[in-house]
């Protein structure tokens, strides 16, 4: 590049450092706030004469309160059960569906692909009313199954589209070679295609996990009894109290409730980012 000297340096500041810092402050401040509030003693928290952006003394009382005086642990277990159950169900069905859509040429295949994509665009707010009736009729209210069976409605469309795109990137010749060698379709799929598709399956899995962990409306309506609540619902409905002393534990719950998804995605951030766009654009 020809550009050197102070001009390039100035461009670097205007085009990178300054906007990057502004984005960091705007996008990360709420997390910083949650963290410091969760560690602040109540006396400091409620004293408006003290600078609220700083932390003068640290306490873990709010976290301890969460574990001893609330159902937070129970919420966490519930959320794990529901999220892992629905992710597993969605992933297995989507691997087959994505493989069929990506690999097989059959009458109605394109139409099915389009219909499944359309399902991805159906928001829970459109269906929660009739679904609540169906869940009630099936006797699944306040049961893990109410969410394990309904979450796949928004997980499958996404995961099968992502996997359909992924399967298409795998050379079909490899599979044909296996078939010619006498392998069955299922064998070729299991030993040739699935190992190669592992990164795609992994990102689909992480996606399903975060979507399941974050779901709110179905969990709010279908699992409303105290001990069956998921983390997002339980924190919102049970930890906000009438007095003002709940903020510390509420923010502590926010931090802890974000950890599983943050960890899941930090390990696979590159998969996640490529998956996020592949699902929407490739196909």
């Amino acid at each position: 590049m020809a550009m050197v000297g102070s001009n390039a340096k100035r461009n670097r500041w205007l085009g990178l450092y300054i906007p990057l810092s502004m984005f960091m402050v705007f996008l990360l401040f709420p997390f910083y706030w949650m963290l410091i509030v969760s560690l602040k003693p109540n006396s400091e928290l409620l004293d408006t004469s003290v600078n609220p952006f700083l932390l003068f003394s640290v306490t873990l009382d709010h976290y301890a309160y969460l574990f001893t005086d609330t159902d937070f642990v129970r919420y966490t277990i519930n959320t794990f059960v529901v999220t892992i159950g629905s992710t597993a169900l969605a992933l297995v069905t989507s691997i087959f569906a994505g493989y069929a859509l990506g690999r097989f040429r059959f009458r109605g295949g394109t139409l099915m692909g389009a219909l499944i994509f359309l399902c991805y665009l159906v928001p829970p707010t459109l269906l929660f009313i009739p679904l609540s009736q169906i869940v009630a009729d099936l006797g699944l209210y306040n049961s893990y199954w109410s969410l394990i069976l309904t979450y796949p409605t928004f997980l499958i469309p996404f995961a099968s589209w992502l996997l359909m795109g992924y399967f298409r990137t795998i050379a079909i010749d490899l599979e044909h070679a296996a078939l010619v060698d006498g392998a069955t379709r299922l064998q070729a799929m299991r030993h040739v295609v699935l190992p190669l598709a592992m990164p795609g399956i992994l990102s689909a899995g992480i996606f399903c996990f975060t979507l399941g962990w974050n779901e709110f409306l179905y969990a709010l309506v279908f699992m409303s009894s105290g001990e069956m609540k998921t983390v997002p619902v339980g924190v919102v409905t049970d930890l906000i109290r009438a007095d003002v002393y709940f903020w510390g534990s509420l923010m502590a719950a926010g931090i802890l409730g974000s950890v599983p998804v943050a960890v899941a995605y930090s390990f696979f951030v590159d998969n996640y980012i490529s998956g996020m766009t592949a699902g929407a654009t490739k196909g």
């Binding site: 984005f23 960091m24 996008l27 990360l28 709420p30 997390f31 706030w33 949650m34 509030v37 975060t210 962990w213 974050n214 709110f216 983390v231 997002p232 619902v233 924190v235 919102v236 903020w247 509420l250 923010m251 719950a253 926010g254 409730g257 974000s258 998804v261 943050a262 995605y265 930090s266 951030v269 996640y272 980012i273």
Partner: peptide, 20 residues
């Protein structure tokens, strides 16, 4: 990775930060 966090974290939870 860090700047994607607002999108990853459950909305119900980040909304609590905004509530405060």
């Amino acid at each position: 990775a860090f700047l994607l966090l607002p999108w990853i974290v459950p909305t119900a939870i980040s909304s609590l930060a905004f509530l405060m």
